[in-house]
Design a protein around this nucleic acid. Sequence first.
DNA 1: CTGTTAGCGCATTCAC
DNA 2: GTGAATGCGCTAACAG
Lengths: 332, 332
Amino acid sequence: MAVTIYDVAKRAGVGIGTVSRVLNGSPQVREETRQRVLAAIEELNYRPSPIAQRLSLRKTLTIAVIAPFFTRPAFVERLRGVEATIAESEYDLIVYNVETTAKRDACFHEVPLSHKVDGVLIISLSPSDEDVARWEAADVPIVLIDAHHPALSRVVVNDMAGGYMATQHLIELGHRKIAYISDPLVNPFNFTSSRDRYQGYRQALADHDLPFRPEYHQAGEHGRAQARALAHRLLDLDDPPTAIFAASDTQAMGVLEALRERGLRAPDDVAVIGYDDIEVAEYLGLSTIRQPFFESGVIGVELLLKRIDDPAQPPQRVELPVELVARQTTTG
Amino acid sequence: MAVTIYDVAKRAGVGIGTVSRVLNGSPQVREETRQRVLAAIEELNYRPSPIAQRLSLRKTLTIAVIAPFFTRPAFVERLRGVEATIAESEYDLIVYNVETTAKRDACFHEVPLSHKVDGVLIISLSPSDEDVARWEAADVPIVLIDAHHPALSRVVVNDMAGGYMATQHLIELGHRKIAYISDPLVNPFNFTSSRDRYQGYRQALADHDLPFRPEYHQAGEHGRAQARALAHRLLDLDDPPTAIFAASDTQAMGVLEALRERGLRAPDDVAVIGYDDIEVAEYLGLSTIRQPFFESGVIGVELLLKRIDDPAQPPQRVELPVELVARQTTTG
DNA sequence: CTGTTAGCGCATTCAC
DNA sequence: GTGAATGCGCTAACAG
């Protein structure tokens, strides 16, 4: 068996209370006995049992993150921010990767009620009212990153502004026939980004007196290959667009692929702008909208820890800025 | 406070022992009382406390993974395999992301001795003999993925074979001036892949009676930009190579970038082959060596769980196959 | 200042 | 079959 606090106490010739006190940095312990205890700890190579501490403290000292993080580069960056921030705290991080709605539902149902964590972080998955109601009872702080619910603390980016920004950029370059490729606006995971960016796209068109053409909006499952097919559909139109705004860089890559297959070039034949500024974007010279992924993870954790500390805090909403990154695929 | 096993017991009019028995599916409990307990659990919406269970069972029911996973796509895939497999077990997964040697050392020192986990998975970071010796005392099973130490269970790929395979592929295409771009062969993280692939490269050259030219091996920090610079160095040589083998797809992208900047094309001017078959490789038409990332994570977990179950098991070594994926950058 | 005691919530004997 | 008692390792009163 492992060495316990009793072993240390005996070794140091004190009671376990005293050992506990030096462990927790209590000031009310004579320096001499503190040294004796420290020595015993050292000699026995003692490490307190986190499990026992947690049972006694009635805190799990761990937080969960539920994220579809592996399917898209953006999630990985956010997770990095989460991990980096948690690592500096006293909390452990346990992760749940969601790649199916079944897994999401399982996580949504079990994690907050499982008594396993003091708080949960949810990335890019917006809960339903029903979910939130169920969580009330559990009394576990929950923070959303890149997801929405009015009753919960969340850190978001203004995707509408991003969509607007991308579209306006193309308009300012002289384009008037601008298409939009995205995920389905309503989807099983309830991802909202495609929908919000679509709003911005529509608004920018309207503000500049450009007509919205339904055939210029093509939606399909997320992915490069699917976006490539959608781009071909656009280019096959009688009156094809001169510019394409893709709801993600991954999809923009599909667009570029389609152009290449037709011997077309960006931006001369068709301008292309993506969204996210993932790492390859720079390599490809892809114009895009950048959002602060890493930072969103950091802030999400900060909100959560604050909430754990003081559960009375009202839900907070933090909005992070997006930024236009103009590269060759639009500006040449 | 949360509802405990006592509440359930009282509610069902039984002792806590009985509740515990139905919780753990003990057969020795009358069907009728089982139903009564189940009903009480349902009515109280009771969930057992994992912390208390763990203290009583003297098991943490969690495993740790230490990985430099966020800096390179390969690690993310392996982590996916790890998470997917853990999710099917009764264990929780806590993650430590390593981006500095300081963090690595901290993890190596603390995690196995922390009493926080029943087992540790380490990805791509090879421990020293000293590390391993220190871990002996902790008596915590440790499994390596894509890393090496004779005393530990591990799942690896044959990087030497991969390097050989890539080089041979180029030779068979008629190339005789073949360069190799990689990370520094010795590096702070002690990553071994560049070194092993280098061995394969050298061996293939030798087996085909091709001379090894020191100036054809360029090593630098991992990354696209750095590889791009190294490629330029190669192309500036009096007698530049006609083919370049990059130790990773990321670095191969840097090579392609350098070619593009010089108006050169792959494979006509210079053939290029990478390593890993990351997702963009297909998009780029990049020839490469594929290794089973996801599966390596799965198998790593399986080894670890088996080891936790039966600590007496001797260390095991599982080698996964690599595979040549020939695309346009070598075959046109 | 320090030793002792009473929980934390559960699993597991051991009697009945 | 089932209840009561003991212990898992630690924190936090409570005395002294």
